[in-house]
Amino acid sequence: MAVPKRRVSKTRAAKRRTHYKVTLPAPIKDKDGTWRMPHCANKFTGAYKQN
């Protein structure tokens, strides 16, 4: 079993974790011209999915 020989410092661990980024989903433009977030209903029309 692999066991670290020395403790990883807070700085080194933080440097490694800088690449774990959360990206926000891009908004979608509906047919009526309003913008909404994906997987959310339109505030004005109440429609969930418009093709």
Rank of each mutant, 00 (worst) to 15 (best):
A47T: 12
I28N: 00
A47W: 06
T34S: 04
M37I: 15
R6G: 11
D32C: 01
A14I: 00
H39S: 11
A13H: 15
W35S: 07
G46M: 03
T34C: 03
T45M: 07
T34P: 00
G33T: 01
M37W: 14
R17F: 13
R36G: 01
L24F: 14
N42T: 09
T18M: 06
K43D: 06
A2Q: 14
A2V: 12
T34H: 05
Y48E: 05
R12I: 06
A47R: 10
K49C: 05
M1Y: 11
C40L: 13
Q50L: 11
T18V: 08
D30F: 00
D32R: 02
P4H: 07
A26C: 08
K15F: 07
K31V: 01
L24Q: 04
I28M: 02
T11D: 09
T23M: 12
R36D: 02
A41Q: 09
T18Y: 00
F44Q: 15
H19M: 13
V3W: 13
K10F: 05
K15V: 06
P38D: 04
A14E: 14
M1T: 10
A2R: 11
T18I: 10
N51P: 02
A14Q: 13
G46Q: 00
K29D: 03
V8N: 10
V3T: 08
K10D: 15
D32L: 04
M37C: 11
R7D: 08
V22F: 08
R17V: 13
W35V: 10
R17K: 12
